[in-house]
Simulated scan of single mutants.
Amino acid sequence: MTLEILTPERKLFSGEVYGVQLPGISGSFEVLEKHAPLISALKAGRVKVLKDKQQHFAFFDIQGGFVEVLNNKATVLVEGAVPVESV
């Protein structure tokens, strides 16, 4: 699936990924390929990007925002975000 992480200033991440773990308002959740359409509010926390099935990850600390999942694409819109580390 395609993932984009966007802030008001710039596009922080864009690419094909296996999945993404997000800090939802009611708790963390994961979105994988072909997920049902969804819109959810996000709280401040850590986003874990699952780049592939071989344990390659990227992490971003985000401020609050929203995620939209539609047509095998997840768009994360946040107030601010910084990359933490990649494995």
Score class of each variant (00 low, 15 high):
Thr2His: 13
Lys11Phe: 09
Phe59Val: 04
Leu38Trp: 00
Leu6Phe: 07
Gly27Phe: 03
Leu77Asp: 07
Val47His: 06
Ser86Tyr: 15
Ile25Ser: 00
Ile62Gly: 12
Glu9Gln: 10
Ala74Met: 03
Asp61Gln: 14
Ile39Thr: 01
Asp52Gly: 08
Leu50Gly: 09
Val67Asp: 01
Val17Asp: 11
Gly45Ser: 05
Thr75Ser: 06
Lys53Ile: 07
Pro8Cys: 07
Asp52Val: 09
Lys34Trp: 11
Gly64Cys: 05
Gln54Thr: 08
Leu38Val: 04
Asn72Met: 00
Ala41Leu: 06
Gln63Ser: 15
Pro23Met: 02
Glu30Ile: 14
Lys48Glu: 12
Ile62Asp: 05
Val17Glu: 08
Val17Ile: 15
Ser28Phe: 02
Arg10Thr: 00
Phe66His: 07
Leu50Ala: 12
Tyr18Glu: 08
Ile62Val: 13
Gly15Pro: 05
Ala58Ile: 08
Tyr18Ser: 05
Asn71Asp: 14
Ser14Lys: 07
Ala58Cys: 05
Glu79Pro: 04
Lys11Arg: 10
Leu6Met: 06
Phe66Gly: 02
Val84His: 02
Tyr18Leu: 01
Lys11Glu: 13
Pro83Val: 05
Gly65Cys: 08
Gly65His: 14
Met1Arg: 02
Lys53Phe: 11
Glu9Asp: 14
Gly24Ala: 01
Val69Asp: 00
Ile25His: 04
Gly80Asn: 09
Asp61Phe: 14
Lys48Tyr: 11
Gly65Met: 13
Leu70Trp: 13
Leu3Gly: 01
Glu16Met: 15
Val31Cys: 07
Ile39His: 02
Asn72Gln: 02
Glu9Leu: 07
Ala81Gly: 13
Ile5Cys: 05
Phe59His: 07
Gly15Cys: 10
Pro23Trp: 02
Leu42Trp: 13
Gly65Asp: 09
Ser40Val: 05
Met1Trp: 01
Ala36Gln: 06
Val67Gln: 02
Glu30Pro: 02
Gly27Cys: 08
Pro23Lys: 06
Phe59Ala: 05
Ser40Trp: 11
